[in-house]
Amino acid sequence: MKSRVIAVPYVIWSGIFIIVPTLFVGYFAFTDSNGTFTFENISKIGKYANVFGRSIVYAAVATVLCLIFGYLLAYFMAHLKEHQKSLCLVLLMLPMWINLVLRTQALQNILMDNGVINRLLGLLNIPSLKLLDTSFSVVLGLIYNYLPFMVLPIFTSLEKLDNKVIEAAQDLGANSVNVFTKITLPLSMPGVYSGIIMVFIPCLSTFVISEKLGGGKVYLIGNVINDMFNQNYNFNVGAAISLVMMLIMIITLVVFGFLDDETKEGIL
């Protein structure tokens, strides 16, 4: 019970399989195919600056939309009765456990030129829309896949809100708008930060969603990395790009309060 040595297997494992690989990313980023130290890979990143920019924009848009729709859902769910709440929670978590590729494929089917949506439009004599292979479809795909990740932490922090605190605010004269802006919203911020982190980072690094729903027209940084490692086998530039992505990720974590324990716990 008081033993410390039983943690040693993990310490060794984490050293070999977490720390070393991370170091290798750095190593590969700063060497060429022969192993000599070079800044060449880093300079090649410049070529992809616009891809980085695009990925950040897509991720940001998706995150903001998830935040708006997700906060609303979390808020309404938190006010349901107990058994309805559990039902909604199960329904919310279910899609998260279905394979990412399958989820995206399902969305792709609907958005196809002769897919269900366009067929319905056809019935109403509306000309079919090009829904697939557009920025719209990619953003939609991001929201579709990651909305639950925004809702859950916000829901958790809203649930933890002591109802008596709300009553105290009302007792002191706050109407429902006041209660929301001065009490509910500030106290739910840890959940909001968690949600932002849990949506923005996966959105930023996606390649399946942009590949399937963007059809090559939406080329994001995840696709670049995928190509580098699985097609061009250019591990060095790939590593360099990954390094930059890790940097962006760390900045996001720091900005949205990874250092705050409450948010950290919220992520789980």
């Binding site: 690989p21 590969f28 690094s205 990395i225 995928n226 591990f235 890790m246 974590l253």
Partner: peptide, 16 residues
Amino acid sequence: PVLNPDIITGISLLLL
């Protein structure tokens, strides 16, 4: 590994 995007976890292990 929890916070890293999957793709980074994947490529770092690949590099190893």
